[in-house]
Design a protein around this nucleic acid. Structure first.
Lengths: 173, 173
DNA sequence: GAAAACTTGTTGAGGGTTCAAGTATTATCA
DNA sequence: TGATAATACTTGAACCCTCAACAAGTTTTC
């Protein structure tokens, strides 16, 4: 039963998947390049700054920040270290948990974000939003939410590791 | 007139953009992990193997291969070097252009691809296709095509560099 | 047909991410 | 309480990608 041949993609599905792949790849590399040029940071760092700027006190626990910025702890640790070198983020100890660290956006960091934001948003518009009809924007949100829901369900079913490992052919059925 | 304030994203647009961002990030990191686990290669390498496998003679000029696999020449060069070390690709000189190199998929490379494909496709199904309705799959293709068309148009208007640089506030209007 | 301009592909340095391992602290529980 | 497990975060190595610089071959131009 585990050897039910692979369910290959249909022509329709394959076309959708490949279009999606190249579209996202070019989109993200464009955004990445724009941010790198104008702000000198990768998009992932920008996202960290954004999340911090929206948090109360412009500060957040590291693990919390990792979660909302879709980042691993290790990645965030490295990233915050780099941003701290620039003086854009300050790390302080967490008062309620001695293991914890709180990342706080500095005024310089906020200023840098404020400077970078217009160019970035403009690019998001040009490369994505303005390329779509309002209806498509809505569809894209719904599709994205469906993907996230599915990923969440997957993780919930499989337990801790968010990634279902190889060859679990008979996992669901 | 150049200082028309930034056209920020509306609530709807922002929500769509952020959902899209986290959905794609988790999706791609899942696929990446799956491939890394099962085949020991990053997704970009997989794509190279796929394109080669579909080419006549399972061979392709480097620059052509770079184009269809959405890769820079440099990136492809590094990637092919790694894949050659594994014996999955062989590089030969191009008969019609002495500058050129032809990358050719070896039998080992094809076997490796054949071994990796089922698990990968299964994951694409689980994480993307099966999470969507058939109508959404179609929408996703259309949206992706719109994004690509816009990127193409952008590049065409701006000339060579595919990335519009910073602060071209008054570029369109 | 030679110089200039362009194309093809590679290389190495720099920087980002992942993975595995490690330290320190807190929670569990017997 | 004291042992064990779990959590929070960091670190270093390995790997991949980008960017700029380069070597080599081809095309263009006069």
């Amino acid at each position: 039963m585990a050897t039910t041949g692979t369910r290959w993609l249909s022509a329709e599905e394959q076309q959708a998947w490949r279009s999606f792949l190249t579209a996202t790849q070019t989109l993200f590399s464009t955004l990445e390049a724009q941010l790198q040029q104008c702000a000198g940071i990768p998009h992932g760092y920008y996202e960290i700054l954004v999340r911090l700027s929206e948090a109360p006190g412009r500060a957040m626990r590291m693990s919390n920040l990792a979660e909302v910025s879709t980042s691993s702890k290790s990645r965030l640790s490295h990233a915050v270290a780099r941003l701290e070198e620039r003086g854009w983020i300050r790390r302080t100890e967490c008062p309620t948990d001695r293991r914890g660290q709180v990342a706080e956006l500095t005024d310089e960091g906020f200023a840098a974000l404020a400077a970078a934001a217009p160019g970035h948003v403009e690019q998001v518009r040009r490369s994505l939003i303005d390329a779509l009809t309002p209806a498509q924007v809505t569809q894209l949100r719904q599709i994205s939410e469906a993907i996230m829901a599915s990923a969440g369900a997957c993780a919930a079913v499989l337990g801790e590791p968010p990634v279902s490992l190889c060859q679990s052919d008979d996992g669901d059925e």
